[in-house]
Amino acid sequence: MTMPISKKILFYFLLSISALVVFAPALLAFVMSFMDNKDIMTGSLPQSLSFDNYIKAFEQFPLLKYLLNSFIVAIAITIGQLILSSLAAYAFVFLEFKGRDLLFFLFIATMMVPFEASIIPNFHIIRDLGWIDQYPGLTVPFFATAFGTFLLRQNFKQIPKELREASQIAGMGDFKFYLKVVLPVAKTSLVTLGAYGFLTSWNMYLWPLLSTTNDTVRTVQIGLKQLQTQEQLNDWGVIMSGAIIVIIPTMILLFLGQKQLQKGLTEGAIK
């Protein structure tokens, strides 16, 4: 089907305007991160562009340390979620045992409990475990995920039951089948969930704010907040360069995995 040219122009016009509006805040920040503070304060167009702000941000703040922490935390959560939710999804799809439906309902129920509503005892648990300012404190509470389990369950259900039966006849146990067949076959959905998990963990805010008190495991999000509170009135260029650094990894991930994420989220969400 081809579109009349006038309609095409209308669409391109609307798309461009929308894109400009949606992207403006990030674009402005990006430009500002290369601008000299004087230009920002006077609101003039940039006279010169330089990496000075980035250099300053790295020099004045342990940004590298924060970035590393964020990577460790996000990757740990991603891997933890992949392992736990794929195991659980396997049980819900391939194993038949008494009480399975009840447990499945329990998983659904977890979606109704916002993490924020149970954050006080959670904080106390982490503190009593001695996990404040520790990587486990930042990661372990997020390993179990109902959303991830549902997404993978949806995907595992598309694996023909006959594959399981053929492997049963061949004498392959459940764990081996999970490892050797289910995980490789469901590779793309694992990648999707992984990307989503990384994205959300990288962007976590409230929990790292609570469970870190110093720089040892502090994530870059909290680092940015500190950068902002300390620099607030004077150096917007440095703040913006910090913010840009924070979003670069997730932006790359998003650009690479946009199609996958879209498919995965729609499937996990709707069915």
Binding site: E162, L163, Q168, I169, G171, V181, V185
Partner: peptide, 20 residues
């Protein structure tokens, strides 16, 4: 006995080939 101990092979309608 579980399938593996019955010493048999089986061919399925959809062949059940491992796609990977």
């Amino acid at each position: 006995l579980p399938p593996k101990d019955r010493n048999l092979s089986m061919v399925f309608q959809n062949y059940a080939l491992y796609p990977h």
